[in-house]
Design a protein around this nucleic acid. Structure first.
Lengths: 249, 249
DNA sequence: CCTACGATTTAGGTATACCTAATTTAGCGC
DNA sequence: GCGCTAAATTAGGTATACCTAAATCGTAGG
């Protein structure tokens, strides 16, 4: 039970969202070393990746995918043993849920003065249950923002979203000065840590490779103290290359 | 699945809320003609009444009550064939859900500029999913309001709620002038109709018994046009007796 | 080419929350 | 005190979304 405003259950929406995330991330993630067979549309998402992302047993994923793919107008393209991708309708819905999530986060932060590291959890729950009206009203109240407080782009109503030219901090080869585009909201502790150190969207950071160990040494905006980031953590920070004058709110 | 912020499912919360409503309404409703056996604590809510309120089959209610009553610390006092009542814990939770509902309604109306007749539906869904933090933040934003936009009292955090001295319009014997305390939000059409006619919380209305038919002829605040209300509709309007200077926001 | 391993799927089970149909119970009128 | 009826309960079934354990598939390495 427990259906969101549209006809999907909360579970289904979560599967769609997870597929979207994994589809977008795959071409950059390791384990898929840039080699993509020509002609093949988009990287297919594996059952295992979905199971991990959703913290669910692989068998549960297979079951759900079979059901989704069997629907009248499926949200998902699925072939046994060959992974899944979103159909056009599925992508539309997934982007709508992401839009909800990011608008809610922005709203909690801007209007309800939530601490930055608490917005994600609340948005994760509410994203499934708000109506179109609610979405529209908070978007209007916020002046139709383009990004959420973590720096992530908010998809437009029609599902379009600004393409990103950014890279993750983990991909930085030599070090240098960068502008922070976004910081992942998935780990609240890490997020708070970064926030305290002055690393947030729009911040200018200096990055050095860490001598000896893996990872980076980072100093924010001149003001902050330098601190270390593991490779793992660096993967959660997206940066823009040349530290131009470009400013993000 | 789909649990609200506490451990209850959405369904369980809805049962608790329904029991609360029926417990409070019973002593005034017909079919229970004021005769209550002395000593008996509170009117017990029947399975049938719950089934009707929740739009669910009676068998489903029996099942659910058995499960609720069998819990470690039950939210409900239930004996086969003798109806249900809320336990202390159950009443606390039910009042919390009502508090959520009414705060959300107020928030949607005041902050997000919802039309009055749309707040109920949205609140009905969201009340189960907001966190304590969300509740606290909107209450603060609104200045800890005492009533929602329909004129219903908002329970305090500790579950206490202003006792009401009001009566329903349906109980008016002869007619006269009254102050509107509240208008039920359960029927959006009716609510909109009343709003257009100027009948809302705080309004002063003149009431006459309708000649011939059942029901009432009502005129709001001198300004509005007179119109008819069925007995049914009159039961959804609560009024305060002497039309004193008392003002409600 | 063929095998072994990891990924995937199938089979069978749990819990929630509904349903309908059949049965039982309470209590009223006579 | 009996029977009748409405209310309540039991019995058995559905759908969702999980789970574990047991098969099976695909493919990379030998």
């Amino acid at each position: 039970m427990a259906r969101g405003r549209n006809g999907n259950t909360e579970s289904v929406d979560n599967y769609l969202k997870a597929i979207l995330v994994l589809e977008e991330v795959l071409p950059e993630a390791e384990g898929n070393k840039g080699v993509r067979k020509e002609g093949v549309a988009a990287a297919r998402v594996t059952v295992k990746a979905l199971a991990t992302e959703l913290r669910v047993a692989p068998a549960s994923v297979t079951n759900m995918l079979q059901k989704l793919a069997a629907a009248a107008s499926p949200m998902v393209e699925y072939e046994r043993h060959r992974g899944v991708g979103l159909s056009r309708a599925g992508r539309r819905r997934a982007l709508e849920v992401v839009r909800h999530h990011r608008l809610i986060e922005t709203f909690l932060y801007e209007v309800l003065d939530y601490p930055l590291d608490e917005v994600h959890e609340e948005a994760e729950r509410l994203e499934h249950f708000i109506s179109e009206r609610f979405e529209e009203r908070i978007a209007a109240k916020l002046g139709h923002p383009k990004t959420d407080p973590h720096g992530h782009a908010i998809p437009a109503m029609d599902g379009r979203m600004a393409a990103r030219e950014s890279m993750t901090l983990a991909e930085v080869a030599g070090g240098g000065t960068f502008l922070v585009e976004s910081v992942s909201d998935r780990d609240a502790r890490r997020l708070r840590k970064m926030e305290v150190r002055g690393v947030g969207p729009g911040a200018r950071i200096e990055v050095k490779l860490r001598a000896g160990a893996e990872g980076f040494r980072v100093r924010a905006g001149g003001a902050g103290k330098a601190f270390d980031l593991t490779l793992e953590a660096a993967r959660d920070v997206r940066i823009v290359r040349p530290a131009s004058k470009r400013t993000k709110k």
